[in-house]
Amino acid sequence: MSQNTKIVLIGTGAVGSTFAYTVLIKGLANELVLIDANEDKAMGDVLDLNHGLMLASPMKITLGGYEDCAGADIIVIAAGAAQRPGETRIDLMNRNVAIFDQIIKNVTAHNDSAILLIATNPVDILTQVALKLSGWPKNRVIGSGTLLDSSRFRYLVAEKLGVDPRSVHGMIIGEHGDTEVPAWSALSVAGVNIDELPAENPWHLNDEAKAEITEGTKRAAYHIIAKKGATYYAIALSLARICEAILKDQRSILPVSSYLEDYQGISGVCLGVPSIVGRNGVEQVVELPLTHTEGEQLRHSATTLANFLNEIGFA
Rank of each mutant, 00 (worst) to 15 (best):
G16D: 13
S17Q: 12
F19D: 05
A20K: 06
T22M: 13
T22S: 11
L24I: 08
K26P: 01
L28A: 07
L28V: 03
N30I: 07
E31N: 10
E31G: 05
L32I: 03
L32H: 06
L32S: 11
L34Y: 00
L34Q: 10
L34C: 13
D36R: 06
K41W: 00
A42F: 09
G44H: 05
G44C: 03
D45W: 11
D45R: 12
L47C: 04
L47V: 15
D48L: 13
L49W: 00
L49C: 03
H51T: 06
S57P: 01
P58L: 02
K60G: 01
I61W: 07
T62C: 08
T62P: 00
G64N: 05
G64R: 05
G65T: 14
E67L: 08
E67T: 12
D68E: 08
D68C: 08
A70R: 13
A70K: 12
G71Q: 06
A72I: 00
A72G: 02
A72P: 01
D73H: 15
I74D: 00
I75W: 07
I77W: 10
A78C: 15
A78P: 08
A78L: 06
A79T: 08
A79P: 11
A81Y: 12
A81W: 06
Q83I: 09
Q83T: 13
R84P: 00
R84D: 03
R84G: 00
P85G: 02
P85R: 10
E87Y: 01
T88I: 12
T88V: 10
T88E: 04
R89N: 12
D91R: 13
L92F: 04
L92G: 04
M93V: 04
N94M: 12
R95M: 01
N96K: 11
N96M: 14
I99H: 01
F100G: 01
D101H: 12
Q102M: 08
Q102P: 01
I103R: 05
I104Y: 09
K105L: 05
N106I: 00
N106V: 07
N106R: 15
V107T: 08
V107K: 04
T108H: 05
T108S: 13
T108A: 04
H110K: 08
H110D: 12
N111I: 11
N111E: 10
N111V: 10
D112Q: 15
S113P: 00
A114Y: 00
A114T: 10
L117F: 03
L117Q: 03
L117D: 00
L117G: 06
I118S: 07
I118H: 02
A119S: 14
A119H: 07
T120K: 13
N121M: 06
N121I: 04
P122H: 10
P122R: 01
D124S: 15
I125A: 15
L126V: 00
T127Y: 07
T127C: 00
Q128C: 05
Q128I: 03
L131Y: 15
K132D: 11
K132H: 13
L133T: 06
S134A: 13
S134H: 12
S134D: 10
W136I: 05
P137M: 07
K138G: 08
